[in-house]
């Protein structure tokens, strides 16, 4: 008998417990969203999604992600280049500082930007004098989103870049390629799947962020409501079917994210074994 496994009964019992827990906490909520979204039929579902406020919320969510994700991508590539390719003092400290936003409550993330840019904030009077709106406006929403998604590309890229080593770049440089040419022709192609992976995870969080955005948005309909905030408003107004219809879009985003993540993980694994 194999010494590394348990009797069939125990095995089945454990699989049963795991799947039961899993069904209760993951599968049932998934079914629940679509059940409620379609509880009043297709027409109500489509009407909820075609509502001007819903469309404005989707647009704002996309705009926010389109600004936040590329900025964090550039940061992620720069940070992983410095951290993975070089050995310098304070590298571990820098790594911990980059992960810092993950351990800050989203509400606190929103709060810090209110303290800086809000009416009573440090820059409040100056901004008012120049008629610039940050809090309760698009810039605040984007800033809060950048903060909460800050490490998401970097922490995926650093291990990928590190596992690549420096040999290929060193060979290119020795053969006379310039620094930038080496970066674009050697390093970037090597980490392209890692980059895509980071973008996908960062985007999912950017589009779904609720707490931080909620603090800085001011909840102005059609103007500063992102899709998650739109879901909240509808739900609090007891428009359950419409709220779940909007939520179903975010669930689809989550599912697409997971599928893409699984595919990319498989590609990266295959690349390692090949």
């Amino acid at each position: 008998m194999n010494t590394r496994t348990e009797p069939v009964v125990i095995r089945r019992l454990f699989i049963g417990i795991a799947l039961g827990f899993f069904g209760l906490f993951i599968v049932l909520p998934l079914i629940c969203v679509f059940y409620h979204a379609f509880s009043k039929g297709w027409v109500v579902y489509l009407q909820a999604l075609a509502h001007p406020d819903a469309l404005a919320a989707m647009r704002l969510t996309v705009i926010t992600a389109l600004v936040a994700v590329p900025l964090n991508l550039v940061f992620g590539v720069a940070a992983s280049w410095a951290i993975a390719k070089f050995d310098f003092k304070g590298r571990d400290l820098l790594l911990s500082l980059i992960d810092l936003p993950l351990s800050v409550s989203p509400v606190i993330a929103g709060l810090i930007f209110v303290l800086i840019f809000g009416a009573q904030g440090a820059l409040g009077p100056w901004l008012r004098a120049h008629n610039i709106h940050v809090i309760f406006a698009l810039p605040g929403i984007i800033l809060a989103t950048i903060f909460v998604t800050f490490p998401m590309v970097a922490r995926e890229l650093i291990p990928v870049m590190r596992s690549q080593g420096n040999e290929e770049e060193e060979a290119a440089l020795t053969l006379g390629a310039s620094g930038w040419k080496t970066f674009w022709m050697v390093s970037v192609p090597n980490i392209r799947w890692g980059i895509l992976y980071g973008i996908i995870l960062c985007n999912a969080r950017a589009m779904g962020e609720f707490g931080a955005v909620s603090v800085v948005s001011g909840h102005i309909r059609g103007l500063t409501n992102t899709l998650p905030l739109h879901v909240e408003i509808l739900y609090n107004e007891y428009q359950s079917a419409a709220a779940f219809a909007a939520a179903s879009i975010l669930v689809l985003l989550a599912i697409v994210t997971l599928v893409a993540k699984t595919v990319i993980e498989a590609v990266i694994r295959r690349g390692h074994t090949a």
């Binding site: 720069a78 050995d87 820098l94």
Partner: peptide, 28 residues
């Protein structure tokens, strides 16, 4: 290391980290 770009990449990393995370958190 013969690899270039250390100052640039580390400089940008610290600049962006300070701007988005460290200075705002320090405000708290």
């Amino acid at each position: 290391s013969i690899l270039p770009g250390f100052s640039l990449s580390l400089g940008f990393t610290i600049f962006y980290l300070s701007l988005i995370v460290l200075i705002p958190l320090a405000m708290l």
